[in-house]
Structure formats: C-alpha cells, structure tokens
C-alpha cells in the first residue's frame, strides 16, 4: 500500500468526526486523540518489529515481550485497585498465560522459534489476558456488591472465606470466559478474524490462514481460563483479614 493510499483511509476518520460535530456528540477530541495515538503507536511498533526481526537477537525479543507484559499489567490493574497487591497477581496471570501458550507452541514445534511468530502470538495472548483480567475484576466487584449479604451469611454460619466467596468467584470467572467462548461459536460465520483476514489480504493461502487462526483461538481459550482463574484465586484472600472478616 502506498502512503497516498493510506492517507486516503483518513476519510474513515473524517466521517465520524463530522457526525460527532453535527450531532454534538462531543467526541471530536477523542477521535483526534485515538487517530493520532493509533497511528504513532502502530508505526512505532512497525519500526521496532522490523528492527527486532532483523537483529535476530533473543534479548530484543524478550525485552519486547516483557514490555508488553508490563504495559498490559499496568493497564489492567486500574480496574483492580480495590484489591491489595493486584498488580503482581495480574502480572503472574499474564506471565503464566505466556509461558503455557509459548511452552506448548514452541515445545511441540507447532510454530518456529523466531520473533516473527513469538512476538505477534505473545501480543495476542497478553492482550487477551489483559482484557480477560479486566472483565473478571469488573464482574467480581459487581458480584460482591450485589451479593455482599450472601458472603456475610456464609461467614456468620461458620464458613471460611473461600467458602463464603466461592459462588461470586466462580460466577465472575465464568462470566469473564463467556465472551471468548461465544465469539468462537460464530467465528467465520459472522466475521472473519483480524489475523486471518490480514494474512489473506497479504496473499497467504486461506487454508494456511485458517490453520493459524485455529491455533490462536484454541490458545485464547486457555488464555481466558488461566488468566481469570489465577487473578481470581490469588486475589480473593486479600478481601479478608486473618480473623476471616471482610475488609471494610
């Protein structure tokens, strides 16, 4: 694609900008910031990836994946400030997802151990683990707010913190996994996934593109289950003190 052609795609930014102004939506500034940020961030990543791929150095690759983990953790923790030590718990979940998925993919030689495969797949797994962690934290908070009397009831009857919060925890884990599972049920019927579309547009064989997409969606299932489970089971204890009382 030429830069002239790319510039012409700004028409797609201009349309919502005009609509926002005409309808007094007040989103012009946000649209401008979103466009500017996505352009700068993606171009920067493009240049960085080019550099990392050419350098063929494991150190740069590890640095890049580490940076992704740090940024994803810092972003997700904003939704979990009400839980003590949540930063490390989210980081642990994301690192676990990364180790499990890359461990299987590289360990069984499913994909080659090169930055061209490791970095994009890591990006998808880490990004998804971040979103799942945020979904879990939002839902867990809502469950606790709505069903605080149930937690108190179970404690008052002699239940342990784990017993008292079990239902809310399981419901939040389940709720955070459902979007991943549901989106996979209609994949290919309603929309073609971004990665697969990108490969096909880039000239790849559709069957080959589908195979890689299947690899990703299967890995995303593990990603969803592992990240919400780890964040959930490591964080619920911080809601209680050593006398098995809910922190107020």
């Amino acid at each position: 694609m030429t830069y002239t052609a790319l510039s012409l795609t700004l028409i797609f930014v201009f349309i919502p900008f005009i609509l926002s102004k005409a309808l007094h939506l007040g989103l012009e500034k946000d649209i401008f910031i979103a466009t500017a940020r996505s352009t700068v961030q993606l171009l920067a990543v493009g240049y960085i990836l080019s550099f990392v791929f050419e350098a063929e150095s494991a150190i740069f690759m590890v640095l890049m994946v580490s940076l992704m983990i740090v940024v994803a953790t810092l972003n997700a923790r904003k939704k979990g400030r009400w839980l003590r030590g949540i930063t490390w718990k989210i980081a642990l979940a994301i690192i676990a997802v990364e180790l499990i998925t890359q461990g299987v993919l590289l360990g069984f030689h499913i994909v080659p151990a090169t930055p061209q495969y490791i970095i994009p797949i890591s990006g998808m797994m880490i990004g998804n683990a971040m979103v799942i962690s945020i979904l879990f934290l939002n839902r867990f908070r809502a469950e606790l707010d709505a069903r605080a009397d149930e937690v108190e009831l179970l404690l008052s009857l002699g239940g342990t913190p784990k017993q008292a919060i079990h239902r809310q925890l399981i419901d939040a884990i389940k709720a955070s996994m459902i979007p991943t599972i549901e989106s996979q049920k209609t994949i290919g019927l309603v929309q073609l996934p971004g990665m697969m579309s990108g490969q096909i547009i880039g000239g790849a064989d559709p069957i080959q593109a589908v195979q890689f997409q299947l690899l990703i969606i299967f890995a995303l299932l593990t990603c969803a289950a592992v990240s919400s489970t780890i964040v959930g089971f490591t964080s619920y204890r911080t809601l209680f003190n050593e006398r098995m009382q809910l922190h107020h």
């Binding site: 149930e150 108190e152 009831l153 179970l154 002699g158 239940g159 342990t160 098995m244 009382q245």
Partner: peptide
C-alpha cells in the same frame, strides 16, 4: 473464627437465602 461463629449463631435481619 469458624468455631466461634458455629458457637455464636446469628440470624441476619435481611434473612438472605442462597
């Protein structure tokens, strides 16, 4: 704590049900 709460039972005002 769990033994204490079994020894001193409590019926809550809202009578929450699971």
């Amino acid at each position: 704590p769990t033994t204490l709460r079994q020894t001193v039972g409590m019926a809550l005002q809202a009578a929450p049900m699971i």
